[in-house]
C-alpha cells in the first residue's frame, strides 16, 4: 500500500496545527487566561497582516523588519483597547462582547476603505520546498510550525516560571482573590493584551505570507482559535497544544478521505461534543 498520501496528510495536518496554535495563542492569553471578552481578535490578526502589506508593498521595507514593527504597533493598539474599551467593563462580559462587536465592524471597514476589498498578497523571503520520503512541504509552512510551537514553549516557560506568569494564572482562576493579594489586575490585563495582540498580529502576518489577505480574513482565525481553546481546555496553554494538534490533524487528514464539507462538520461536531461531555476541555481546569 502506498503510504505516501497518508504520510503527506499527517505532514499537512502538523503544518495546520502550527498555524492554528499560532492563531490561538493570543486569544488563549487574552480570553482564556485573563478573561477579557475580546471577540475582535480576528480583526487584530487581520490588522497585523495589512500593516505588513502596507510597509512592504507601499513603503518598500523588508519583510522581517515590517513584521517586528507590525507586531509592536498592534500590541500597542491592544493596550489602548484594553484601557479604553475593556477595563471599564471588566465585570460585565455582555457589554464587553458588544464593544468587541463594534470593534469588528470598525476595524473591518476601516481596512476595507483604506485598502479595498480585493485580496492582496505579499511574500516572505522564505522559499523552497522540503522533501523527504516522497512527501513535500514548503519551507514557509515549516517555518510557521517552528514559530508556533516555539512560541508556545516560550510562553509556557514564561507563565510557569516567572512571577508575572504566576500572577496571571492566579488572576485567571480567582480575580478578586488575586487582587487582594496585591496583584495589579490592570497592568496584567494590559500586558496580556499587548502580548496577545502581538501574537495575533504575528499569526496574521505569517498566514498572509502563505495565502492572501482580505478584510474578512479574521473570522476564519477567530473560529479556529475558539475551536482550539475550547477543544484543548479553557485557561490552559498546554490545552492549546492539544487542541491545535487535534484540530490540525483533523483538518489535514480528513479532507483527504472525505470531502471538505464533511471534514468541516466533523471539526465542529468534535468541539460541540467536547463542550457537552467535558466542558472544561481536554486539559482545562475550571
Amino acid at each position: 500500500m502506498d503510504l505516501t498520501p497518508f504520510l503527506q496528510s499527517i505532514v499537512n495536518g502538523l503544518a495546520l496545527s502550527g498555524i492554528y496554535i499560532l492563531v490561538a495563542l493570543g486569544l488563549a492569553l487574552v480570553l482564556s487566561i485573563m478573561g477579557i471578552v475580546q471577540i475582535s481578535h480576528g480583526e487584530i490578526y487581520m490588522l497585523g497582516a495589512y500593516i505588513v502589506y502596507g510597509l512592504t508593498k507601499v513603503l518598500g521595507l523588508d519583510f522581517f523588519p515590517s513584521l517586528l514593527i507590525s507586531m509592536f504597533s498592534v500590541g500597542l493598539v491592544g493596550v489602548l483597547l484594553e484601557r479604553l474599551c475593556f477595563r471599564p467593563f471588566r465585570g460585565s462580559p455582555d457589554r464587553a462582547f458588544t464593544i468587541s462587536l463594534a470593534l469588528i465592524l470598525i476595524l473591518q471597514n476601516v481596512v476595507l476603505s483604506m485598502a479595498g476589498g480585493d485580496p492582496h498578497t505579499y511574500t516572505s523571503p522564505i522559499s523552497g520546498v522540503l522533501r523527504f520520503f516522497g512527501v513535500a512541504i514548503s519551507w514557509k509552512r515549516v517555518f510557521i510550525l517552528i514559530v508556533g510551537f516555539g512560541l508556545l514553549l516560550l510562553l509556557f516557560v514564561l507563565v510557569k516560571r516567572t512571577k508575572v506568569g504566576q500572577a496571571m494564572l492566579a488572576a485567571s482562576q480567582e480575580k478578586d482573590g488575586a487582587s487582594l493579594l496585591g496583584i495589579d489586575i490592570d497592568s496584567l490585563s494590559a500586558l496580556a493584551m499587548f502580548v496577545g495582540c502581538a501574537l495575533a498580529a504575528l499569526a496574521g502576518i505569517l498566514m498572509g505570507s502563505l495565502f492572501s489577505i482580505y478584510p474578512t480574513m479574521g473570522s476564519f482565525a477567530l473560529m479556529k482559535a475558539m475551536a482550539v481553546i475550547i477543544l484543548g481546555g479553557l485557561g490552559s496553554l498546554g490545552g492549546a497544544v492539544i487542541g491545535g494538534l487535534l484540530l490540525g490533524l483533523i483538518d489535514g487528514i480528513l479532507p483527504v478521505f472525505t470531502t471538505t464539507h464533511i471534514a468541516g462538520m466533523v471539526g465542529f461536531g468534535a468541539i460541540i461534543l467536547v463542550l457537552i461531555f467535558r466542558p472544561q476541555g481536554i486539559a482545562g481546569h475550571e
Partner: peptide, 16 residues
C-alpha cells in the same frame, strides 16, 4: 455549557 461558550456552540451549530 454556560456563558460565552454557549454562544460559541450556537455559532458552530449555525455553521454546521
Amino acid at each position: 455549557i454556560r456563558g460565552i461558550y454557549f454562544s460559541i456552540v450556537t455559532i458552530f451549530f449555525s455553521e454546521m
